[in-house]
Design a protein around this nucleic acid. Structure first.
Lengths: 137, 137
DNA sequence: CTGAATCCATTAGGATACTG
DNA sequence: CAGTATCCTAATGGATTCAG
């Protein structure tokens, strides 16, 4: 499993002789997922929902600085990719509950490891950043 | 390690009683890392450099559709965060080699697990997406 | 060969007002 | 309560040109 081999899988058009017209990266799994996961709110919502199902208003209160526009949109995108499920309860007024799917829990296993790494190594990253900014000015 | 507890760590200002003026998310480790990792080219470059060190021109050829501007910028940002090292060889014309640091290799362990997940489950995500788009119209 | 600088198009995301 | 719709700003990223 060399890097180049993986790269070829993930960028189908990456060869020595490149047919620019034939390049199509819409099928790259890594980009396809990172595009969604890399959003400003996705990981935080997955973390919250990994613990337990939550209603729309609960999520809104737990993420104090999210706009309802981005909450709606991020939840819908996560649902679209199959990571979370949306269930409507016909109460008056209606309530909606969001919860992790099996696919979402499967994703959350490697994802949470990465998030744990971020917490554990945040100081090292910040230190590297300061070092870089001081020498390079 | 409940979700709420983690959330509080990662969003220092997330409480019931919110002092909006005191909110400061610049210190959230998850956002701080995902902001960089979530970029369009970061993960691909880390994958390539995890295999072996590469020169600027090599990277340019291996990622056929990256612009010079984004290659330079992404490499610089990865170096700034301490994930990769940059070494200049005083040849004529000069050559520059990029390689993983220990911190970068440390990051790459959980990261590669996530990327492997993306490859293994790409079909499931695409299927979920089609399902969503067909019912919701 | 390895960039820096400039200009421009696209997108992500926030503020506000309105609805079933 | 759980959203839509509209408008607007900031950030990403590509194309092109210039430089050590």
């Amino acid at each position: 499993m060399s890097g180049v081999l993986n790269l070829k899988n993930r960028m189908p058009g990456a060869r020595r002789e490149i047919d620019l017209a034939a390049l199509d990266f819409s099928n790259c799994p890594v980009r396809d997922m990172m595009q969604q996961i890399g959003g400003k709110w996705s990981t935080l919502l997955l973390e919250v929902l990994a613990a337990e199902p939550r209603r729309f208003g609960e999520l809104r209160r737990m993420l104090p600085d999210i706009s309802q526009r981005m909450l709606t949109q991020t939840l819908r995108d996560l649902q679209r990719d199959g990571y979370i499920a949306r269930e409507v309860f016909p109460t008056k007024p209606p309530s909606v509950e969001y919860s992790m799917t099996e696919l979402g829990r499967s994703l959350y296993q490697p994802l949470s490891q990465l998030l744990n790494w971020a917490e554990a190594n945040h100081d090292s990253v910040r230190a590297a950043r300061s070092r870089f900014d001081s020498v390079d000015n």
